[in-house]
Write a protein that binds this DNA or RNA. Sequence first.
DNA 1: CCGAGTGTTCGATGAAAATCATACACTCCC
DNA 2: GGGAGTGTATGATTTTCATCGAACACTCGG
Lengths: 111, 111
Amino acid sequence: MAERASHRVAPEHTHPDDVPVQTALAALADPVRVTLVRELADSAEWTRSCGSFDVPVGKAALSHHFAVLRGAGLVEQRDEGPKRVNRLRREEFEARFPGLLDLVLRADRAH
Amino acid sequence: MAERASHRVAPEHTHPDDVPVQTALAALADPVRVTLVRELADSAEWTRSCGSFDVPVGKAALSHHFAVLRGAGLVEQRDEGPKRVNRLRREEFEARFPGLLDLVLRADRAH
DNA sequence: CCGAGTGTTCGATGAAAATCATACACTCCC
DNA sequence: GGGAGTGTATGATTTTCATCGAACACTCGG
């Protein structure tokens, strides 16, 4: 059939424009999610599969965190073969919440 | 004696510079606290006592929220007679987390 | 010095969120 | 098509956090 690579249900995405400030802040208030966002920011787009992140949680929790990040308009996902690869929505998120992402990424550990 | 108005233990304050991003985001991720911050932003400094805010929580919870806001470097308090009056640490917080406060204050309800 | 007003502390309660283990669905490759 | 690899869904457990009620501390004005 004229199908793309995946038969799975495509992940639900929320555009940053449709995200309340509250939701964005809550998403970024969790250390695990911030780690994901930071690692994602240091990688090329669509190169990181969900399982490739160095966080101390099981895959169930990990999957949950990605769902939250999608819901906050921070991450976009696409199925590529058996893996689900990720992309940080830098520009779109920056346009909706100017400065916020940079704040989290820079994260002066000097404190 | 050469004492100020209050004998109470002065409230503990944390300067924004000593606040981790994580803490700041968590503090602003609560709707009640955001209401406090917004009302505070719309008032002259040192004019609002803790009890003067329009939030749907008892005074115990309210007192807790102010403690969190102090710990996040968002609010400064001073005892004035029997009341404790507040001030939003606009400049200091802005210097530490550029753009963050504006983001919360503007809070486009258009979503 | 008492009483009203104000805010904090403490302990308990309830709700929300993070986590895990297990089971399941899908894709690819042999 | 079977099996390994990858991610999701579900249900239970744990932790965290917001909240409340009641008791307490402090200030001020009669």
